[in-house]
Each structure stands twice: as C-alpha cells, then as structure tokens.
C-alpha cells in the first residue's frame, strides 16, 4: 500500500511569514504570484491595443488629432506623486500616506475626465478619428484599472495590513508605469 508518512513542516511557511511588524505578515508568495500574473494579463491586453495603435497609424491620413496638453502633463505628475506616496505608505505602514495616495489617485482620475472634456470641447469625440478613438479607449481602460486600484487602496486603508499594502503597491506602481508607457506610445 501507499506509504503516507507524517507531515514535515510545510515548505512554504518560512517564506511566507516572519516579517511581522505588528501589522501582520507580508503578502504570501501565492497572493504575490496571483497579482503578478494578473498584471501580466493586463500587460498583454495593452500590448495588443498599442500594437493595434502603431499599426493603425500607418493606414491613412488624418491620424494625429490629440495633442499633448498641459493637463495631460499635470495628470502624469499627479500619478507619479501618488507612486511616491504609495511607497511611503508601504514602507512605513502609514495610513496617512495611504490616504494621500488615494486622494492623488482620485485627482488623477478627475484630471483624466478633464482631458476627455477638453477633447470634446475641441470637437474630438470618441468616433471623430481613429487616433482620438484610440486615446479614449486606452485612457479609458487605464482609468478603469486605476478605479480598481483606488478601491483596493480604500480597502487597504481600512485594514492596514502589511500584506494588502504590499499587493496594492505592486498594482499601483504597475499602473503608474503603464500610463507612462501609454503616453510614450501615443505622443512619441
């Protein structure tokens, strides 16, 4: 018959635990893997869409319509600042910085909506031209992910657990980097 012997200590325990600083253990390797894989999937969606953007560029005239406006720059700065706040929040397990991150995140979203308004005022709607369409789609989908991140920040602020903070910061930094990548693709 099969020999099922007495259990050894579980192999994954030491890696998962032991960084306890009063706010619970760090994120488990399992959760970390889960978030990273989720981000890999998100990356693939945006890689697909930006490839479509680059390819579409060559298809016809009347491409460039959206121009870099000051508000787009301000938004990017706000998002970068939120990344800094996130890092302070994670390292110091600080609720203050975390709420700061959240406020900056909401400000970024408001700013993005502002850019949409500016475009509409210029007569550039979702279906006006393909570059405009792509801008709305890319910024919109990114915004939805930021909205998800803001929700996660709020959740993290309630529990203030180290593990949630670690996972949220992973996600948040990624979304910041993603927006910079999108700006580069769109405006370079």
């Amino acid at each position: 018959m099969a020999t099922i012997v007495a259990p050894p200590p579980r192999a994954s325990l030491p890696r998962d635990m032991g960084r306890d600083g009063g706010s619970g253990p760090g994120a488990s390797i399992t959760h970390r893997t889960g978030v990273m894989l989720g981000l890999a999937a998100v990356s693939m969606m945006f890689i697909g869409l930006t490839s479509a953007y680059v390819v579409s560029q060559g298809l016809g005239p009347l491409w460039k319509q959206v121009h870099l406006s000051p508000l787009i720059g301000i938004n990017a700065a706000v998002l970068l600042a939120s990344g800094y706040a996130m890092e302070r929040a994670r390292r110091g397990i600080s609720r203050g910085w975390l709420i700061g991150t959240l406020v900056l995140g909401v400000a970024f979203l408001a700013g993005q909506v502002g850019v949409f308004r500016q475009l509409a005022d210029e007569g550039l709607y979702l279906s006006t031209g393909r570059q405009t369409s792509f801008y709305y789609v890319l910024a919109g989908l990114h915004g939805i992910h930021i909205l998800g991140g803001v929700t996660a920040l709020a959740w993290a602020a309630v529990g203030m657990k180290r593990s949630t903070l670690e996972l949220t910061s992973l996600y948040w930094h990624f979304m910041g980097g993603l927006w910079l990548y999108l700006l580069l693709v769109i405006f370079l």
Partner: peptide
Amino acid sequence: ALLAFPVLLGGGILLLLDRLAGTSF
C-alpha cells in the same frame, strides 16, 4: 491562455465600439 485571452478581449472591445459608438478601428 493567460497571455492570449487578454488580446482577444482588447480586440473585442474595439469591435464592440465600432458597432456601438461609430468608431472605425
């Protein structure tokens, strides 16, 4: 699957917009 399905999802969103929002992707 993790790397392929998101691309279809992105494409599907564009196709849906062509149908519903008048875009020309």
